[in-house]
Design a binder for these strands. Structure first.
Lengths: 338, 338
DNA sequence: ATCGATCGGGTAATCGATTACCCGAGTTTC
DNA sequence: GAAACTCGGGTAATCGATTACCCGATCGAT
């Protein structure tokens, strides 16, 4: 390893300054020198050392991203979208998973900051426990929260309008004839978990339908299965179940059908996210689609505008989701097959 | 940004050398100086600059990983396993997706090398087109291929024993009574695609059953659905379909059942990988489980042993997979529910 | 012919952490 | 008592790329 610009300069018989200028084109050199340097660089297989460049320029051309886990298809989708968005700006992405642990998350943020990333995009795993690490990071480098956020504001955020999304889901099942509804979600450790529950409750109250006590566990298929069993055991099924994400919904549909209930005839089920699983499962899931591409684009745009520790008030950008009606709910006038 | 070790040294009233030694503990300092430096560092919130350290030490504590795409659950699973494996060695992972394009892949390798990663783990997207970029990278830095590999050897490889895996699948369906079999896989652009087809053909020939022409498309659900329709349209179904991965298998099961065929009564279906989808789908898929954890551990171990450009002959490590019988094939004596 | 501007090339400082090297004080040993 | 050694501290070189700064040559204008 290691042909440096000094080697190139020597081989071309010029100074390092000329070599650097010839290669970067940031100042004119004679065509003759340009030619000699280009040839020398090609022959030696010179490749500039990004580490040295980063040290000198005080910028790494890198942004860090921290998500709870890449096993979750929602996060991989959003990572891909961010990557696509970054592609043409020449910045690379350093991706880390916090594994749903605030401790791991804090460590990951530390190493990203030590590596002097130019910015951070994070989906904090815990609405409370993630606060200090996220605020500290935001003080040192431009930072945008994507999807999940920490309580108390203090850092910019881009995400879906959960309130609006849940309203779409609730209004849809009610339009399909549901008179009793229940929410199947996650324990309230993330902003998404909280907002989706409250969005559900508000929409249901406004519609005046009967609301059963919410079922709160994890954002997983397994919890969906368990929640479905719980509903069956309770002896009385609601007309509709609105879920906090698609994995819960898929598990729920599976255990409901396994227990003899018909979906959507006996119970309508609606998910949230619309990534991967929704079309995969059988029957295809009605769900609320998160505008992942727009969210990623907006997050990258916002990050570009930010300066570290800028005392400008934190922005919150909520993008409207869309309802996608498939086959686990009764179709009504609206809705698009996706 | 930017309290440096000079700031710490000044605040503690000592030289940078002492500050560095006090912080790293790599040479003794008096307890008094150690104390003063520690206090100054804490008060200033000093965090060493990893970029400067990397330049000086000629090592970044980082390894790069390039996979075709993180949308594919098989690759995210393997990435997670590698990450876990790296965790306790203090090295970070720079993850890149080649998006199944040799051009993107080559670019990604270039930037990883420019950033002076200490090593590379790659699953080359194309068995032929990826050759030059991978060999070039292997010459400059320790490199291990994981899962997919390039033709012609020349770089170390760790993966599953495809031959053995396909034999497990074929023998299993034959033990279940199949007399005619077909392979549903991908066009032969990757090593996995080729080895699985040839493994299938060898096992089927050895067993002496009827073999229909293979169905070759993509490693996707959509292709599985299409392949299933193709079989139905052909008018005569084989007794068993062995698939090159789980996504194809899931799509296949779905379209076969939609077309009125019973699985496994009319047709047995076996997948490959056993990540994510296999248990999710309904009915749960019989499949061949890739030993992802072992593969990741082995790749990291091997990487640690390698020196860049080492002329030692390339190693190939194939780890045996395991058959997991669920409900898309007829159970026989062996097999474990997973 | 001379002055100023312009152009292009080279020398060396810079980014931040580590460490080779040097030096003085204190200790040991014959 | 002097030579040899140890211990701990400081100065400055180092990693590689970029660029501020300086300098000589050339050109145009007066």
């Amino acid at each position: 390893m290691g042909v440096t610009i000094h080697d190139v300069a020597r081989a071309a018989g010029v100074s390092v300054a000329s070599a650097s200028r010839a290669l970067s084109g940031r100042r004119k050199v004679t065509p003759e020198i340009a030619e000699r340097v280009a040839r020398a660089a090609a022959e030696l297989g010179y490749q500039p050392n990004a580490v040295a460049k980063a040290l000198r320029d005080q910028t790494t051309g890198t942004i860090g991203m921290v998500v709870p886990g890449i096993g979750n298809p929602f996060f991989t989708t959003i990572v891909e979208a961010v990557e696509r968005e970054l592609q043409n700006s020449g910045t690379d992405l350093l991706l880390c998973a916090s594994q749903y642990s605030p401790q791991v998350e804090a460590r990951r943020l530390e190493t990203l900051l030590a590596r002097r990333v130019d910015g951070l995009i994070i989906s904090p795993c815990d609405i409370e426990a993630s606060v200090p690490a996220v605020l500290d990071a935001a003080r040192r480098v431009p930072l945008v929260q994507l999807d999940r956020y920490i309580e108390g504001g203090g850092a910019d955020w881009v995400g879906v309008d959960d309130e609006a999304g849940l309203a779409l889901a609730v209004d849809h099942v009610i339009a399909g004839g549901a008179r009793s509804v229940v929410f199947a979600g996650s324990r309230l450790v993330s902003s998404s978990a909280r907002l989706r529950l409250s969005g559900f409750e508000r929409a249901a109250a406004r519609a005046g339908v009967e609301v059963l006590p919410p079922l709160l566990g994890e954002f997983t298929l397994e919890w969906g299965i368990e929640a479905g069993r719980g509903l069956l055991d309770a002896g009385r099924l609601p007309d509709a179940v609105v879920c906090a994400n698609d994995e819960i919904a898929v598990g729920l549909v599976r255990s409901l059908r396994f227990g003899g209930a018909r979906v959507p005839e006996d119970v309508a089920v609606v998910g949230f996210d619309d990534v991967g699983h929704a079309t995969m499962c059988d029957p295809p899931l009605s769900t609320v689609r998160q505008p992942v591409e727009e969210m990623a684009a907006e997050a990258v745009r916002l990050l570009g505008q930010l300066k570290a520790g800028d005392p400008r008030p934190a922005q919150r950008i909520a993008i409207a989701p869309r309802l996608v009606v498939r086959q686990t709910s009764r179709p009504v006038a609206a809705g698009v097959e996706g």
